[in-house]
Design a protein around this nucleic acid. Structure first.
Lengths: 346, 346
DNA sequence: ACCTCCGTTGGGAGCGCTCCCAAGCGTAGC
DNA sequence: GCTACGCTTGGGAGCGCTCCCAACGGAGGT
């Protein structure tokens, strides 16, 4: 069971090196020898010892997925599970493993970082949705470990995969405009995170392009959670918007609750657009109009690019890789034309 | 940056062994020497090479979390994220790392298994919610790798952590009985999974204890998903139950939709109880009465027990560890007294 | 003054694998 | 028939660390 290369070699009557060649599919092994070795491997149930191999090759085939503490709270949101699934899928098919590093309370970021990057266990790191201020990226850069971020990062040499947050937000707002809305509010994510910034930019750029009022009072910062969306919407309500763009579906769901709580209806009194298109977007009443982003694909691509960087395939190893995936507006039932002035809404 | 023990030793004017002792907090190092070595470590930015250490100690401090393919579909359910978070938390505080192994389409279970257990990278495995028929447990047993399952497993020597599914189901049904329901249906999970079996057993035992009808037609098998719950409920509707116990919140939510789809109301026409108490249980209308299980705690305990087994602390190493956590009924708004016969329901 | 013992320290021998270099051998070319 | 070259194969030298055993020296006991 726990046989070693040497034992297999003896059994096959060849040397350690030859067995190693067979295992690594090295071409220069005579067919007859190869067969003999393979038989010996079968018989002994031999499996290469990954740790020993890693020590010799300086490769572990293990990737780290880092999720900063601030974000791990969102873990009940399907966003991360989906991204993880994409990442895992890619790892599986490329023969890599994924270590999950959530920054939790019991451990400081720097301990966490040491354990990760400098432990020598990781061939590369996927830094998911880091916020700009957590200092993770500079450290990774300093370590020289290959990494990629999910969500754009401003530093020049950083690889990333992202979705078109600006474009998605634009589509959402344009949809609202098309329905006749003029007084549109937005609930943003935490502005230390680039996707939140970008969605807000998209919102603003459309408003500006249409010469619409862009009061800061129509912008409420949330935290991507339902509770945060609810609180933000409650504030927004005072401004009497006829439509709201929430930067995540969870926040949109929170917003709908706040609206109902104020005895208003969605979409008759206020239209709501979300972002993400998580499964529960269709579980709620009314089904949510939202911007779909390919979350699973994002995780998958991140891993694939990271691996190609690690393995140094072609020019991937020198060119910074930046991929932005398109987003898509999904029209459902949470938006309608704005109420007539002085109409049903008191 | 990538200095070795030897280099640090030279810098401190001691031997490799002494540096090793300092790093591993071995007591027999003179204070002065220790200080000198620590300074050298600081200066050189030395970090022990985890892989080399693992090769020498035969310990990686890496655990695997295995989630079978059939279950990874549930990934949009908050169950796994929460369990993962508990597990990660425990790993973090004990200095372990967690490798996530989802069985995905691109890889067969046996390849997956080889990669895991026999790669030598894993000190132990947490097998989450395996179904009885996927053959994972026998293989782990055969390999002799330490492991624990989340959700009870019938084999004698297997460690597990579980929640009191039977008791939880009982509480749910008794609650319904107390409200006056007699014709109660249930939507089960896939019966190849022990939690699904246990919840059904709880349902049955209460029904039997109260001498209530136990028609198989009032039992519909679902798959823990919302869509499955909806389909199962649609079938159940023909039996005209006044209440339904769904073995997961997702299925309960699906059931509510099916009920509404039939132009009936929850809870006025049909009461619904779920299981899990996921966050979205309070996001829907009406808020769901459900059985709460400590999911995060489950993941955490699984890891802690696994680690104590690996490290062979005391008798933990020989006694089978089985822990069953209590569940709790959370009464919200999805249950009411049954409609009067011939009442509003046509 | 000598022996013993303990607290410290150093160095060899691996852990199981890869990689490189060299050796063995058969064959083709001259 | 001899040289050269290419295909195979074997074995040494690590990868960076831990662990064990031996050695060293000073303190305490007699």
């Amino acid at each position: 069971m726990d046989s070693t290369l040497e034992e297999v070699a003896e059994r096959a009557g060849v040397s350690r090196s030859t067995v190693s060649r067979v295992i690594n599919a090295h071409p220069s092994v005579r067919e007859a020898t190869r067969a003999r070795v393979e038989a010996a491997i079968q018989e002994s149930g031999y499996r290469p010892h990954a740790v020993a191999r890693s020590l010799a090759t300086n490769r572990t085939h293990i990737l780290g997925m880092v999720i900063p503490e601030s974000v791990s709270r969102l873990f009940t949101d399907p966003y991360f599970p989906l991204m993880l699934r994409g990442a895992t899928e890619a790892c599986n098919s490329r023969g890599y493993q994924l270590i999950l590093s959530l920054f939790t309370a019991s451990v400081t970021p720097s301990v966490m970082h040491d354990r990760l990057a400098r432990s020598g266990y990781l061939d590369g790191v996927v830094a998911a949705n880091t916020s700009l201020d957590d200092g993770l990226i500079p450290r990774l850069l300093e370590d020289g470990i290959p990494f990629i971020t999910v969500g754009r990062h401003p530093v020049d040499s950083v690889d990333y995969v992202d979705v078109d947050n600006v474009g998605g937000a634009r589509m959402a707002i344009e949809h609202l405009l098309r329905l006749g809305h003029r007084r549109i509010g937005t609930i943003t994510g935490p502005l230390s995170m680039t996707p939140a910034q970008d969605r807000l930019d998209g919102f603003r750029s459309v408003m500006v392009a249409h010469r619409l009022p862009l009061s800061e009072r129509l912008v409420a910062e949330g935290d991507f959670t339902e509770a945060g969306g609810r609180a933000a919407m409650t504030r927004l309500l005072e401004e009497e918007p006829t439509a709201v763009f929430a930067a995540s579906d969870s926040m949109a769901i929170g917003a709908i609750k706040a609206i109902r709580n104020a005895n208003l209806r969605v979409p008759e009194d206020i239209s709501v657009v979300g972002f993400d298109d998580v499964p529960s977007a269709v579980s709620i009443e009314p089904e949510l109009t939202t911007v779909r982003q390919p979350i699973e694909r994002l995780g998958q691509l991140a891993v694939e690019i990271l691996i190609s960087r690690i393995e140094g395939k072609g020019h991937d190893a020198v060119t910074t890789q930046r991929i932005v995936l398109p987003t898509e507006l999904v029209v459902r039932k949470s938006c309608a034309e704005p109420p007539r002035r002085g109409g049903p809404r008191t």
